[in-house]
Amino acid sequence: MKPINEMNVSFFSRSSNEGFARAAVAAFAAQLDPTVDELSEIKTAVSEAVTNCIVHAYRDTIGIIYIKAQIYEDGRLVIRVRDKGCGIENVEQAMEPMFTTGGEERSGLGFTVMQNFMDRVRVLSHVGKGTVVTLYRTLESRPVGND
């Protein structure tokens, strides 16, 4: 199935862009007429994925984060957050609740939050090449307009 709408945005992995990234995706997702709760959960999941790129993928450097968001006719929202950073050696371990390599002030709950707030989370990573996190969420609420 082809998406009926798509947006792409890329930006430097500066922490000041975390707010921008989740607001951009939320503004795009708004055309699916989500509830306040749905929108808040989407923003939180995007914030987690983007923060991972900044804190882990591009740890001591500044790289580019790419977000692609797509809307499908059946109300499905697919958000892909991609980086060309260090990659994750052990994805399974990284997704375990409370596991973190981010130090004391990181909770290790990023992937747990994504999994709780989205229908499905897919992670593809290659060490030295980067990571793609894809977030899937179907918005039940109301049908999409045709424009």
């Binding site: 939180t44 914030s47 987690e48 909770s107 990023g110 747990t112």
Partner: peptide, 13 residues
């Protein structure tokens, strides 16, 4: 208005 898991780390700390 908004909090992600960074806020959890903040509370734990």
């Amino acid at each position: 208005q908004f909090m992600d898991s960074s806020g959890v780390g903040l509370i734990m700390g």
